[in-house]
Write a protein that binds this DNA or RNA. Structure first.
Lengths: 340, 340
DNA sequence: TTTTTTCACGCAATCGTTGCCGGGAACGTT
DNA sequence: AACGTTCCCGGCAACGATTGCGTGAAAAAA
């Protein structure tokens, strides 16, 4: 790809590259006539400044790195949409990378992003990530980082999350108001921030309504839905099996539904079900799945805005604020009819 | 971010930058001792070559541009996974961009990718794209482009697609073998390559089994599932309504299912349904959705392989071959029981 | 006419890296 | 002793763009 450079323009017009550069940037010390000539020629030849050369000189790339556990996930792809929209409108490009829920890959990916000289990093931690030394080092070097969704307390950066506690509280409350009393909770790996918050919300709702918190009703599993059958079977085999399930993620709700169906359990008659998910097909399932929906796009937007602000405000001292965005409760069939 | 450079190393070790550079690259004309010194120091200081400087010098970025209509789509995110896997294993990075099914944005996005000096482009055309002048120009300048999934005949580049004809044929054949005779087809915008091929496969299967091709049974709609109710209602209002639907995309199948359910039509008793989709929840729907599944990841992998090959083989003359990958028929409940 | 000011532009350095050329030292060959 | 090799390494230039500084010439002021 032989694109035209400032040098080519200079040669063609018998001007120095400096003059061309200044003409294009509208410097006052270039005559109107020369400017016109240069601008016209550049236009005609479809000149585009080489962003790589600029990056080298200015030591910035106008690229944001986004690292998510996986993009084949409604929540993350919606969040990425939000990030992209903000980034592009502010002249940044976005480079999307996946950690594939793997700690080592996350570390490598972060390193690669930094090598590529991204101006900042937006990260949602992998489910395997307990330790954040790889980010801590960067953060201490004053490298702009914003965490979203899956965050870490050990990192003193801005964080954007959904109101996981509130969403879980609302979901549990909803089940209670539908007359359910033995509400099981299936969560994702417990060391994840979102997992803990959702568990806390569930527990708080139980307490608020005077229901006991029963540890035997709580399970934490991996992220693949294929792992759902055993815990569900286990729960249903209890002396007094649960009459409701509150699951903590996109895939868990679907996996749980499949497992229950496989067990011949009727939803919502026998067991009510509500998920914490952004899947777009919730209303097409049978029964239509009640969910707590997260403002994925809004999370992405806010994260990108904060990151760009942090990048462009050269000063140190990131605010390190945590932004909590409200969730929405979507009541459909799976959580059962209004109880008599 | 103050990363260490080759110059810093030179200063610290009292060597010229050229020597350091050569030492790091293991050049034969540097003494073993010096090499050791340099490599050790570089290691210790965690030196990383600046890829931007390299890009500028070598006029290549080791970045592949991927442009898809949207990432929040199972097929595309799977394809991207395939692309990524191949790219990273061969030392390339991937920059993902979305056209949002919009022609103008596609044009702009292509331009931005080129400005960013990606080494090559992997594109699946937006549904609005009838004209490919923006790609034709690039292609003629010998810029590496590979099309996948949504391709164009007007572009003489390598193309990777699913066997849309075969998949559609198999789906239609399956419905026929289940005893269905009035099979409706709902497709996406007809000027898209995949749309035409799927229609052709549907038609060929009808002919092969001696069924008439009835134009009134065929509809083409936009890509949003919210537009599904009218055509479905329209079809079901016919004197002899269809006894089966074959839909041509991820969202159509789901939208169609919702529309049929809203109409009170029972699936598969009254109307059998089969989709052309990669959605992971097909088996969780009620009834479980029969589908034709595309090798999304394989398509991505092959596309990336061909692009990289094209990039690294400096020669001109891209093969311009079209690669057709087989689809798989997944028979579930929605296409009905074996007919008596 | 001479001096000063203004205008319009060129030179060169810079960013990090590598390719090309050249050059000094040590050694071997006549 | 003179010359050629080989081994190691440094200097310069270049990739594309920006920018501080310098400079020539013309215009304005003296």
């Amino acid at each position: 790809m032989d694109s035209i450079t400032i040098k080519d323009i200079g040669r063609a017009l018998n001007l120095s590259t400096s003059t061309v550069s200044r003409a294009l940037r509208g410097s006052y010390e270039i005559s109107a006539e020369t400017k016109r000539l240069v601008v016209e020629y550049a236009e005609r030849m479809n000149y585009r400044p080489n962003p790589i050369a600029l990056s080298l000189k200015e030591n910035r790339s106008r690229v944001l790195g986004v690292i998510v556990p996986q993009i084949a996930n409604t929540f993350f792809s919606q969040a990425i949409n939000g990030i992209e929209a903000v980034a592009y409108s502010r002249g940044y490009h976005v480079i999307i990378m996946q950690s594939h829920e793997n700690y080592e890959r996350e570390v490598i990916t972060v390193q690669q992003a930094v090598d590529r000289k991204v101006d900042g990093l937006l990260i949602s931690l992998s489910s395997e990530t307990h330790e954040v030394a790889h980010l801590q080092t960067l953060h201490q070097k004053n490298f702009p980082i914003v965490l979203f969704d899956r965050v870490s307390n050990e990192l003193d950066t801005p964080k954007i999350v959904a109101d996981n506690f509130g969403g879980a509280f609302a979901a549990t409350e909803h089940l209670i108001q539908r007359g359910r009393r033995r509400i099981a909770h299936i969560g994702i790996p417990i060391y994840m921030s979102i997992s803990q918050e959702r568990l806390a919300g569930y527990r708080a709702a139980l307490e608020h309504y005077g229901l006991p918190y029963d540890e035997t009703l709580v399970r934490h599993v991996g992220l693949g839905e294929h792992e759902m059958a055993p815990p569900v079977a286990d729960l249903m085999a209890q002396a007094t099996p649960p009459d409701a399930f509150f699951t903590a993620s996109d895939r868990l709700a679907l996996g749980c539904m499949a497992a229950l169906r496989a067990q011949g359990v009727s939803i919502p008659e026998q067991v009510a079900l509500i998920g914490f998910t952004n899947t777009t097909v919730a209303n097409l399932l049978a029964p239509a799945l009640s969910t707590v929906e997260q403002p994925a796009q809004g999370i992405g937007q806010l994260a990108a805005e904060l990151l760009i602000e942090r990048i462009e405000r050269k000063q140190q001292a990131p605010p390190a604020s945590t932004h909590k965005l409200p969730t929405r409760l979507f009541i459909r069939e799976s959580s059962g009819p209004v109880s008599a």
